[in-house]
Design a protein around this nucleic acid. Sequence first.
DNA 1: GTCTATAGTCGGATAGAC
DNA 2: GTCTATCCGACTATAGAC
Lengths: 224, 224
Amino acid sequence: MKDKKETTKEKLIKAGTEAFAANGFEGTTTRSVAEKAGCNLAAIPYYFGSKKGLYLAVFERFTDLHSQYLNHNLEAARAFLEKGDRDPETALGYLKQLIGAMVEFSCSRPPNAPHHQLIIREQLNPSSAFDILYKKVIRRELDVISRLIAAITGENDHRTTTFKAFILLGQVMTFHHGRQLIVRHLGLHGYSDAETGEIRQLIIAWIDKALKPDQTDSTVRTQS
Amino acid sequence: MKDKKETTKEKLIKAGTEAFAANGFEGTTTRSVAEKAGCNLAAIPYYFGSKKGLYLAVFERFTDLHSQYLNHNLEAARAFLEKGDRDPETALGYLKQLIGAMVEFSCSRPPNAPHHQLIIREQLNPSSAFDILYKKVIRRELDVISRLIAAITGENDHRTTTFKAFILLGQVMTFHHGRQLIVRHLGLHGYSDAETGEIRQLIIAWIDKALKPDQTDSTVRTQS
DNA sequence: GTCTATAGTCGGATAGAC
DNA sequence: GTCTATCCGACTATAGAC
C-alpha cells in the first residue's frame, strides 16, 4: 500500500540525518539531501512541509533510536534506583555499564553516530529541535546518571550531582565530536576496535577512581 | 595615520568572531557582520578578500589571544617538564593550575569565549581554519597536558596519555559548549561566579582522584 | 506521488562615485 | 577608505503536468 511512500520519506530522513549532522542546518541544501536520497527536490516540501520540517523529523526519528539503544541500561539503572537500594558498589556497576554503552555508541559505530553531531549542533545553536532532544533523551540520561552518582557518593545536592554527571558525559562526548582532532593528532585512521576498547577502559577506570565510594569525597561547598 | 583603517578592520574581526561563533560560517551573513560592526558590507571583501578571508582572520586573531591567555601556565609547565624533574606531585600541581585557568576561561568569561564555540565548530566541520587552530593552540595544549599526565602517572605510552589528556579537556569543554543545556536543566541564568567556582573545584577534585600518583594506575593494555 | 519548470528571495562580490 | 547600486548565482518553495 504505502510502501513506496514510506520508502521515500524514509530515505529522506536518512539522508537528512547525515547531511544535517555533517554540515549543520544552514550548511545543508535541500538539493543535496534530495540527491543523496535519490529522489526529487520537491519531495521535501511535499512530505515535510519545509526544510525545517525535515530537520525536525530527523530529530523525532533519531531520538527514538537513541533512547531505544540505551533504554535497556537506563531502565535497569532506574529500576535499581526506584527500589530504594542505595548500595554504592551496585550503583557504580550500573553507571559503568551505562557509560560503557555510551562509549560504544559514540565511538565504535561511526555510521550510526551522526546523532551526537546533531546534539552538539543543537547545543551550540538551539532551535525548536532542542526541545525534542531535551525532553526525549537528554533529560532522562542526565537524571539517571546524576541519581546514580548520588547513590555512589552519598552526595545529595542536585546541582552538584548534575555537574558531576556533566563531567562524565563530557568525557564520553569529547571522543565523539573531537574525533577528527584525535585522529589527526595521533596519526590514526579513525577509531579501530582496539582504540574504542582502550577509550572505554580509560573512562571507566577514571570514573572508578574518581567516584569510588571508599574514598572520602571531598565534597565541594560553595555559597549557594 | 592608519588609526581609522585599523579600527574598521578591528571592528569587523570582533563582530565576525561573535557572529561566526554564534551561527557558524554558513549561518552567518556578511550583511549581518557589517551591520554589527557598524560599517559597510563592501568593507569585508575590501579588507579580507572574501567572507572566508574574514573567517580565517578571525581564527588568526583569536588563536593569538587564546595562547596569550594560557601562555603563562603552559610555559611554566613546559619549563618544568623540560628540566627533567619528574616529581609527580609537582606535575599534578601544574596540571591543576592549567586546568583551573581553562575552566575560568571557558566558564567565567562569557563575552571572551566565543572562542570555544569556534573550536567546536571547526572540529565538527574542519575547514582551512582547522590548521591554524591545531598548529597554534591545540597541539601545544595537548602536548603539555599529556606530558604532565605522563609525569604524574608514570605512564609513557603516547597514545594512552593523549587519550587521558582528551578526557580531561572534554570535562572542561563540556561546560562551555553545553552551557545552554546545563542552564536549562538546572534552571539557572548562566554561570555565576559561584557556579564557575564549583565547576572548577569539582573538575580539580576529579583529576586529583583519578590521577593521584599514590594509587596504582590500573593501566590499560589493549592489543596494539 | 513524483516529476519539471519556475517563481521569489537572499547572499556574496563587484563597479564605480565620492 | 567608504559608500551606493547592482549583478549573479544559489537556495527554498510552489505550480502544475504526468
